[in-house]
Computed example of a mutant assay.
Amino acid sequence: MKNPLLLLVCLLAGAPALASAPQRKHPQPQELAPKSRQASMPTSLTGNRQRVPPCQGQTLQRSVWPQGALLWGTRRKEIAEETSSVLSSVAMSGVQLGGTALKGVRIEDGRLVASSVEPEGLVGAVFQGTASDGQSVEVALCGADPTTKNQPMTWYHIEFWNAQSGAWENPCVATTRVPTPRALAVPGIWDEAGARHEVPEKFTFACESGVIAKCTQWGYRPWAKKNGRSLADLHQACTRMARADYCGDGRSHTRENNLIDMYDSLEVITRTTEASQSWAPERASFEAAWAPDGAWCLARTREGQAVEKILEQCPDRFEVGVEDLGGGDRCTVRRKSGHAGSALLRNRSYSKGEQLLQESTP
């Protein structure tokens, strides 16, 4: 993926438009049924509760929480907790479609498939999910948008049953750029410290506004390979970089709309050297090198926070020391153990002053 103009990343911007308009299998906002019609729709019973079935075009939910650099891209279950989620993992077992149990559900090349159903036939299926606090939650698959051939994966429109509001809602954070966010089915699950785990029969619905989905869309598809090497570790390093999770503990050090340029050891993405209307390479400087468990070394922070503050946050991790990575990338703080070969990904960004200048430029 050697297209420098596509590598300029706006951290909390919506996903780029697809090459061709997908066929949507769910109602658009203007197509939502009026309240009177929704109220007359058939209901389903769960225990002693009566509720409207999923995928009926529920009212859009818009969050007022600070966006930050989200991991899953989902709404928080606990407002004060940065890595709290209403939906952190989903099971491949216990899937129901039209009252029938689906078997053999799995992920192949970024899309959900089942043994006895065509991929597009999965729309309407209900999965069993889990929130970050361990609570069970139902998740309905309400639509599917296949992407272009050069990126074979599918975006899904999903809803979860919100027991508090008594309604089916989109768990993904809606933004001005992406008012109706979708999700990718990504292998593995992530914990509250941002670490990825391979858990049999479980996967993640990663929403568009979260870095798990963004890193996948940028080219680091964790199920893919390049030169015989899996991209899973690069994808994980990308999630740390995108959130500026220097300590590898789940805490982000960035904000909405910070511009970054990334490049990796396998050259899935290469460094941007050509200027464009939104990016001036000569004004950007090296920030950090990244491993799957956080920064391997850093020269400065993205938001202008003193590097000493990072040393205080994770004192057992870093030490002051120069590490020259070549290509003009030079760290002033590095890991206490390990070697530079652990760094799979590097990034450049604007300093705080340059970022403010960029934002004020018409």
Rank of each mutant, 00 (worst) to 15 (best):
G14R: 06
Q56G: 10
V64E: 12
R75D: 03
S36H: 04
E78D: 13
Q23E: 14
A19Q: 13
Q50M: 15
K25S: 14
C10Q: 12
E82W: 00
R51S: 13
S20C: 03
P16H: 00
G14Q: 08
G47Y: 12
G104E: 04
V105N: 07
G99F: 05
P27L: 12
P66I: 02
V90L: 11
V9I: 10
L102W: 05
S44Y: 03
L45M: 07
G68Q: 05
C10W: 03
Q67W: 02
P27R: 11
E78N: 08
E82P: 03
T59K: 14
M92N: 15
Q96F: 03
L32H: 09
I107E: 14
A17T: 08
G57C: 07
A80D: 06
P29G: 04
L60Q: 07
G73E: 09
G68R: 05
Q61Y: 01
S85P: 14
A91W: 14
I79Y: 04
A21C: 11
V105W: 01
C10E: 14
S84E: 06
A17C: 03
R37D: 09
P34R: 06
R49I: 07
L11T: 04
R37I: 14
A39I: 05
R37V: 15
P29L: 00
T59C: 00
P42Y: 06
N48I: 09
Q50A: 10
T46D: 12
K25C: 01
R62Y: 08
A33Q: 12
S85H: 02
K35C: 02
E82M: 05
G47E: 09
